[in-house]
Write a protein that binds this DNA or RNA. Structure first.
Lengths: 117, 117
DNA sequence: AACATATATATGGTTTAACGTATATTGTAA
DNA sequence: TTACAATATACGTTAAACCATATATATGTT
């Protein structure tokens, strides 16, 4: 794939996108409503940021019925995957991100199945 | 030190700053005129971007006479240094960056000493 | 002191990015 | 076909980033 460095870092430079990516990095694929809930942000806001990540092929998507699942694009160059990995292990335990994970995990436990109520 | 993730990636998301950082990553400390020459950009433009990098403590500086030397801040959190390292090894050989290194190396050879003519 | 070199900052204009709100699309189920 | 749930997009506004040009500061030299 063809990744532009500047674009790649621009995608990481917004906190909403970074939080979403960190969740995907750790949890694998996630649907929009899971992200919306975990990050506690409006659906259009999440959706617009995810559209950008998809446009630049940082993530790829899979539709399952009404749900659209997003995950980090495994075809990214190794160095870019490394950056995401390094970032995740470096900041995954900071308050902000730790809280995101908790909210998401609680949600998953409650609904038993994968997605929103 | 206290590094904000969003800010860190914002600093990497501009091509001028990224090119400068990649040069510092590989070459160690560099003065403004070396960067100006290697990147072939106007002095105020370089200077403004370096000021941002310094403001957010991505780089630190050392004055030597008229020259101001910039280098990557070794006090950055390990994950951030890792990101820079990973990025450097991942994109250092792409055309743009390779060319920057060549120009800088030619310059250093010519002037024998460290800095500008 | 006067001047030159290296670097930094200020100003004003232009472009890009983000946001909230409203609305459209797509799929499912009755 | 109507209704609903999940997701995507459009529109208008606000804020932030970047740039080129001009000017200021700091250091060194004569």
């Amino acid at each position: 794939m063809n990744l532009n460095n500047e674009t790649f870092f621009k995608m990481l430079s917004d906190n909403t996108r970074l939080r979403a990516l960190m969740l995907m990095q750790r949890m694998g694929e996630l649907c929009v409503c899971e992200l919306t809930h975990a990050l506690n942000l409006s659906q259009p806001k999440i959706s617009r940021h995810l559209a950008q990540l998809r446009e630049y092929e940082i993530v790829d998507t899979r539709r399952d019925g009404q749900w659209m699942y997003y995950q980090i694009n495994s075809q990214l160059p190794a160095w870019a995957l490394g950056v995401l990995q390094q970032t995740s292990s470096g900041i995954g335990e900071t308050e902000q991100f730790f809280s995101d994970f908790s909210v998401l995990n609680d949600m998953i436990k409650q609904t038993k199945a994968s997605c929103c109520s």
